[in-house]
Design a protein around this nucleic acid. Sequence first.
DNA 1: CTGAAAGCGCTTACAG
DNA 2: CTGAAAGCGCTTACAG
Lengths: 337, 337
Amino acid sequence: MKRISIKDIAREAGVVPSTVSAVLNGKSKQMRISDALSEKIRAIATRLGYQPNSTAVSLRTGKTNVIGLIVEDISNTFFATLAKFIQDEAYSMGYKVVFCSTENSDEKGIELIRMLLQSQVDGFLITPTNGMHAEVAKLQALKKPVVFMDRFIEELEKVPYAIVDNYNGVINGMDHLYEKGYNTIAFLSVELEQVQMKQREQAYFNSIAKNKKGPPLLFRIPYDLPTGESVQRIQDFLQANPGIDALFCATNYLGLKGLESIKSLGLSIPNDMAIVCFDDHDIFRLYDPGITSVQQPIESIATTATQLLLKMINKKELEPQEMINLKSASLIVRAST
Amino acid sequence: MKRISIKDIAREAGVVPSTVSAVLNGKSKQMRISDALSEKIRAIATRLGYQPNSTAVSLRTGKTNVIGLIVEDISNTFFATLAKFIQDEAYSMGYKVVFCSTENSDEKGIELIRMLLQSQVDGFLITPTNGMHAEVAKLQALKKPVVFMDRFIEELEKVPYAIVDNYNGVINGMDHLYEKGYNTIAFLSVELEQVQMKQREQAYFNSIAKNKKGPPLLFRIPYDLPTGESVQRIQDFLQANPGIDALFCATNYLGLKGLESIKSLGLSIPNDMAIVCFDDHDIFRLYDPGITSVQQPIESIATTATQLLLKMINKKELEPQEMINLKSASLIVRAST
DNA sequence: CTGAAAGCGCTTACAG
DNA sequence: CTGAAAGCGCTTACAG
């Protein structure tokens, strides 16, 4: 059972391969091939079960219809979900997706970019780390389309990205709390030099200032502390600032999922204290009935990024405002019961 | 910045392209090309930053070094973890992985197989559904290597698979409970016509018989019941059979994670009752200190399947016993506290 | 030791 | 309207 090629069809139809190619690519009109002949060729193709060999097509056209997806770790729910939506979008447009994980290693990221480049992917979807800077710059020099997701590299201004809107996400969350009547909102952050964290903290400060609720109560804990230690520090912080009636977590690295998980961590908070988590990595953490505002940024990040990339691949001009694409933040709000 | 080809190197080195090809493919010795010349060519290649065009290689050699991964849903933790291990194994052997999700739809599965076939993947890694039967048979006719994971299709005897060992997993779990002194073990199963469920139930019956502990206490609940309803039925069942001192769940579809989650479901069980879950889909559910036996079948399934597939792709003969590859089950045991 | 040629399966100008 | 030819970038017999 040998795979049949365009030649086989041509022989069967008594024409030359290029005619078959034209018909099968819907160029019968331009080539002024008669409808009768076109129909005959198509019939033969389906009868023989013709499947074009896409490596041949790729070699000839320079397009593989494959996009490369580089994430930190595909087994992580966030990236896996991202991958799912990307895949859906890509397949619906006739593209395949090859994925790989960097394991947060710059060298591995660079190696993977090279590898995907060599296999001629049409474009890249990347959750970048700063270490990828130079390699991505090379991709740009080669005019390979790249879109960042979830994060971006500040120096690479020409690379479009789809991320959650850190600044406005926090502003919205703060507004929500003020509306609910909370007045002394503390901001719990993590000692990380990430753009995201800076943006979120900045939004907190600005919100406090704008609403004249100062002074700000920012508390930072190291990223790599054991959970128990983190909980202890938060506890101490709350103790030292008894006026606090709401806690805004800049990230959900403690894995808060509602009252139950807060208790199981051993964190004791007043019954009427509100807790809000800025959580862009997990859309499934909906336990409490008090949640008021939830969006699904993963889906919009994935879909937006993929669409952007496919436009670039197909040489469509991007609208200027498409170059930087901010998406709303997801927000998990637990109102006091 | 144009990509440079083998021709460019040849021109630079003053030789013909085939010589370059031979050198770069490590065939200098066979082609009796002098070490000096080989070195010179290699130097030029690295200086110009040569990257072979893999679509050209694929067209010529008929190999793409890509394997197709078809799972039910890549965003599901089980499949995502599987994907991760597959990717690790594949990349270390120089293969890329393109993935897609069937969403449990037979039509989609068939379509995806066709699509991957057309893009010339070297082999398939599939978590199959029965509806894929015919399509996978076609792959076999085309001599395309296929390995099943997690599930298999009984009629397709020639397709190797890597799955958890349902039968022995349950036997081991039962033995464990008997050793711990439990005597009246109920088996909680789900109304599903899956091979896995049948195997697990069979193991339960056989274990009861072998250990002369009868009569068996099998309780089945419909798969699609709301959680609350399921819990109620289990509760009723336990009430009606007060002698039960251990509950063996054939699957963890209730998402049991230990005592806490059992309580939060509203399931009230005697303090000295043991609960065992046969859980092959989630290796992270390790809450209780009483867990005695945990393995990581996802990793072995992924690695075994990938290695098997790569052997087949590279035309290595499989040992007869490799054709069917059973892996031990993961087991989460909560002993009474 | 090295070079010239064919060919993988397609598409795309181009010539009639 | 249709066909002949070139070529995408490689590798692989084969000839010297």
